[in-house]
Simulated scan of single mutants.
Amino acid sequence: MGRSLVRHPGVRGCYTAGNKRFLQLNELDELRMDVYENVKLYKEWTKQWHDSKITRKEIIVGDKVLLFNSRFQLFPRNLRSRWSGPFEVVTVFPYGSFELKNNKGECLKVNGHRVKYFYEGQPIQARGELELEDLPSLWDE
């Protein structure tokens, strides 16, 4: 920049205020570049970790899926499930879209992020009732 370090006569290692400020600004730029590099490395590491946790959905035609209901509700019911279905997959489109068919035969096209696999199992059978009075008490001892 054409600036030279000017020393005061008779004082060792003393620079003028302008030159001192110039050195401080250079040091600040170096610190800023170090921080930039550290943030860049952290973002790469975080992206790699996040991508390793993502599992790919393998949903094919004929599978049963649940659909996430993401509509905003002013007074949502706390105990109501936000998943509806099951729906049957009719078509798998590129880039993760699906065409689903409900029990009435109506078709709708949805994004793959709103879908999860539906696991059909044996229906739960009701068991006999158990009264709390019949259980031995731990505090009676």
Rank of each mutant, 00 (worst) to 15 (best):
H50Q: 14
S137F: 04
F22G: 06
G85P: 04
L100H: 00
F22W: 09
Q24G: 06
Y15Q: 10
H113F: 15
V110A: 02
L100F: 02
G85C: 03
K101W: 05
D63G: 08
V90C: 02
R82N: 11
R71N: 14
A126I: 09
V6W: 08
P136F: 08
N103C: 08
Y117I: 15
N102I: 06
K20V: 10
R3N: 13
K40H: 13
N103H: 15
L138E: 09
L108S: 15
N78G: 11
H113S: 15
L132R: 10
M33N: 09
E44S: 12
S4Q: 09
R71P: 03
G85F: 09
P136G: 02
Q122C: 02
Y95D: 14
T55W: 08
V35Q: 03
K47N: 14
H50P: 00
L138D: 08
V92I: 08
K53N: 10
A17R: 12
L67Q: 01
L67T: 04
C107K: 07
K20N: 11
L130N: 01
F98E: 01
V61F: 07
L79M: 09
L25C: 09
Q125L: 01
S4A: 13
M1C: 06
L108N: 05
G112V: 11
K43C: 07
V6E: 15
E30F: 02
N19K: 07
G10L: 03
E106V: 12
S81I: 08
E120W: 00
E30D: 13
I54P: 04
S4T: 15
L67W: 02
